[in-house]
Design a binder for these strands. Sequence first.
RNA 1: GGGCCCUUCGUCUAUCGGUUAGGACAUCAGAUUUUCAAUCUGGGAAGAGGGGUUCGACUCCCCUAGGGCCUGCCA
Length: 470
Amino acid sequence: MFAPNRPVVTRIAPSPTGSMHIGTARTALFNWLYARHRGGTYLLRIEDTDRERSTQGAVQVILDGLAWLGLEPDGPPVFQFARAEQHREAVRVLLSKGRAYRCYMTVQEVAAERERARAEGRVLASPWRDREAPSRTNAPFVVRFKSPLSGETVVDDLVKGPVSFRNKDLDDLVLLRSDGAPTYNLAVVVDDHDMAVSHVIRGDDHLNNAARQILIYQALEYELPAFAHLPMIHGPDGAKLSKRHGAQAVGEFAELGYLPEAMRNYLARLGWGHGDDELFSDAQAIAWFDVADVVRAPARLDWNKIAHVNNHYIRLADDRRLAALTLEALKRAGGDLPPDAEARLMATIPLVKEGAKTILELGELCRFSLNSRPLVLDDKALALLDDDTRARLSRLALVLGAQSDWTPPALSAGLRAFAETEGVGLGKFGAALRAVLSGGAPAPDLAGALGALGRDESLGRLQDALSRLR
RNA sequence: GGGCCCUUCGUCUAUCGGUUAGGACAUCAGAUUUUCAAUCUGGGAAGAGGGGUUCGACUCCCCUAGGGCCUGCCA
């Protein structure tokens, strides 16, 4: 298999047309992993040659997405459109070598020829390929590549293996539009060459283009890079990933409360594997990663597994960081927050983080401690408060009021001792105590909840409920 | 229509000619229990179909079926 004998340079080359697809994120990850693994360089090129669709905002989305994922490039981004002059120069070379020609077909003529070609089961052919320019030289034209009519071109792909194409199936693609703007297939070749890209690692959807690009490399006498085409990421149902699958842009994953390190781990496992390893660090991924081990088949996004991986990293995450992220998510969602919300989160998060699959869920699990007094008790909670239980809870309030050590272990012991003096099991009043403390929202174990809430808040909530009119 | 790619449990994958086809997520059952969750134990679950090659195929070849990509003066 062909592997160029030069420094490893990879690149992620998204086009700024709105959002950053999760597939683009994975392509970036693989390029990053491979570059790091080989001690090479990982670059970013913004493919903005389509002036109609490219926007500055979309460029920012890409930059933000990569930054969030922790996959920032090793150098400043290259803007493809800014290199139009180099692209035109390459076309001049091709023209002078007779490897490209001016095509004066009108759009209507092209459409008609395309239809004919399709009907005849062949590739589009321009009558200008071997014809002199018309007398009226100011007629609009595009420059097309003069693709060989015979022979074959093989893409020695690092993940797919050798893939061969008959040249007769490859058409004379447009290199320069009638307004003089370069097209993608020309620009990638020139830019990858000028950026000294050694490994072109990109989506499967470019495998067919690779053959045509190789022809351009050869015509320009450029050294070929190695190619690696990654299978696509589909939605859970196997169809192309789209909006209805929940999320497809990396920004959405961030908003849903997934951690970037979890995304890196999950995405690395989508289409690549290292034995039975499922959860691993960046350092391990870098040490293990090789494009040769990339899976050939497309993969489906599995929300359950993303959730599981994310939960793993939430458990590992620093509580201060989680509190900040949760607070941010809570603010974004709107709703009232107490002034000391962050402190309450800090106290609660350690108790509930094990059950949180996302930051959003972490916020839900902390809800009980964030609510302000007096709590609104839901019906289920209210139903627990019969006369006997109220009486017992007021006795408990006294005991707790005298509790000197307000830490979960001590509280747990206090609760057990109280149950014993009452001659009942914890089950007899535990649910009611919880209801009173949380209002009915899910809460951690009683001692933990009391500890997180603190003495004043706990006793206050207990008192609120007991003094309620029945 | 033409070209190209792909096909192991529901999902992600391991196995790369000889395994009781392994793991993870999900799922089911049980344990624990002061809600939800977490945790622990156990179970079920796969080589698309058909031909070859071979002493022996999930692994190699061919065909079929299904899915995907390209076929743009998009990338």
